[in-house]
Design a protein around this nucleic acid. Sequence first.
DNA 1: TTGGATTAGTAAAACGTTTTACTTTATTGC
DNA 2: GCAATAAAGTAAAACGTTTTACTAATCCAA
Lengths: 334, 334
Amino acid sequence: MKSLSIKDIAVKANVSITTVSFIINGKAKEKSISEAVIEKVEKIIAESGYKPNQIARSLRTGNSNIIGLIIEDISNSFFSRIARLIEDKAYKRGYKIIYSSTENSVDKAKELINMFKSRKVDAYIISPIKGIEEDVKMLLEDGNPVIFFDRNLPDINTSYVGADHLNASYQSIQSFIDQGKKNIALVTTDINVEQIVERYDGYKKALEDNGIKYDENLVLKIHFNQEESETISQIKQLFEQKNIDAVLFATNYLAISGLKVLKQINKKIGDDFAVIAYDDHEAFELHTPGISTVQQPLEEIAENVIKIILKQLSSKTKLENQQVIIPAKLIIRD
Amino acid sequence: MKSLSIKDIAVKANVSITTVSFIINGKAKEKSISEAVIEKVEKIIAESGYKPNQIARSLRTGNSNIIGLIIEDISNSFFSRIARLIEDKAYKRGYKIIYSSTENSVDKAKELINMFKSRKVDAYIISPIKGIEEDVKMLLEDGNPVIFFDRNLPDINTSYVGADHLNASYQSIQSFIDQGKKNIALVTTDINVEQIVERYDGYKKALEDNGIKYDENLVLKIHFNQEESETISQIKQLFEQKNIDAVLFATNYLAISGLKVLKQINKKIGDDFAVIAYDDHEAFELHTPGISTVQQPLEEIAENVIKIILKQLSSKTKLENQQVIIPAKLIIRD
DNA sequence: TTGGATTAGTAAAACGTTTTACTTTATTGC
DNA sequence: GCAATAAAGTAAAACGTTTTACTAATCCAA
């Protein structure tokens, strides 16, 4: 069964295609179509269940009403929760989301940008990685709305929404020091993105400001794409071989691995060993004792992202770029 | 800067649009285009960075190379992990995923189906809810490939992939009974989908087969869309007011709420109180003691879904519907 | 040398919309 | 009673592809 076209409706109503189009698009009044005709056509549309072909519409208008979302990995709860919030808000304004995960591969990210481009998405929401600068620049030159979130690329001049990672990390370390900790480790990843680097910088700066010597042996950089078993054995080594009384995990999945290690080697979190995880996770609240975390303001990030992008979409002219840095919150649990 | 069209390439190469099209689509040989022309055109395409407009392509061919994914909630880890796996496998075959969350609303689900329809997605992967039977039937009548996963709708005759919920639930209860438990509670939701109903049926049947009387006071049905605080207080009531020595949670997020209650009221899981959660979660492995769970075979579900749908997409004729029921695995932890 | 087959390529229709520029009829102001 | 204006509507081009049906030239066999 072929689906109906505007032509079928026009024939049924015995009017022109143009007239039907005007009515569908709410321009009937302004184009002076009579009330009688409007009613007749609307009735036929309702009865027949006709829905305009969005593809044809997109081809003609150049808009797709689709927003492309490029993230690292939809199965990571940080991204899936952001995605959900963004989807929600976009949906209410008539926009759909098409997403893809880059898995931190530059090639895949570039490919995705190209694919979105050829699909003529109306806007790009990207959690970027280094290496796609040129591609993003081209998007911007072509006049596409692009917004970064979570991570930023310093060379690119576009809007950005993210948490204040440096400060959050600094405060975490400061809270360790306030508890009298001296040997503070950092478990982070080796991916070279601003948001991760900032967490590292915050760590370093807090130590410095408190007159504690930075010791690179206490910083463990985990390779991004490796198996969890490998990660676990590396963390185990750190915990067993160094004299550590506190550790900051730069991502929640690293913290999860770390907690598994603690369980394995039967080391308890308590007065002589403190833990903070960056990015909250349900497991942390439930854990005994509760794991302190840096909570990223998901809702606010999503809200700002979509607000900025929708504003840009509804504006004829290019708006000023916005940089929104939202404070993260240190939640102390025990 | 306007993006390039096939026409621009044709002009530059001094050949017809048709010729360029044939070359792009790998039909050059079969349409007897000379090697020299092929090379010339390919060079120009590569140099100019031309990418065919997928929208125009879709309009003409009727295919979008997009698969629509309709789920309950992308931020739920079960769905986001499935989504990731599906995305991955689809991507390798040149298909993109466009997803939306229904939030368990029939209206939203219907709307989504319509939206996907008007976007001419090539196939539908749906975790369905009751109430959309008619809409799905129409899709099927129009010849669209549709596959259900996780949940099934008994009235609809289409392919389905899911776990064996009844059996998994039965076995969980059986394992409680084998441990000598007598007062076994079930915390489930009130959404009326097959997958949830089956878990309930398995609970009931296991009790019956073991000669234990079913007591409806031990079954708590949580309203789907309510606040977590409300859920927690209901579970608390159940735990405090009934004499219970084991509980099966029908979803992982209910189990999380339940564990929070246990922490609050300081009730320990151990010899006199056992817990099993349906659907695994990272928090469960980390928990002390570890929480036993029913693990759904995510990978296998995703693999079967995409295999069936891709097979259907590459076939000219309508293939036989397939029902794939995959056993779930009871993981006992302590 | 003729005429069927092959080679190399192209013109134009079609996909389903939106939108511009136009026509026809009715109404108004003077 | 006539020009100007408004009301009601439409024809056709355009968006960027794919694909069908076609042409023109060359080749080969009998």
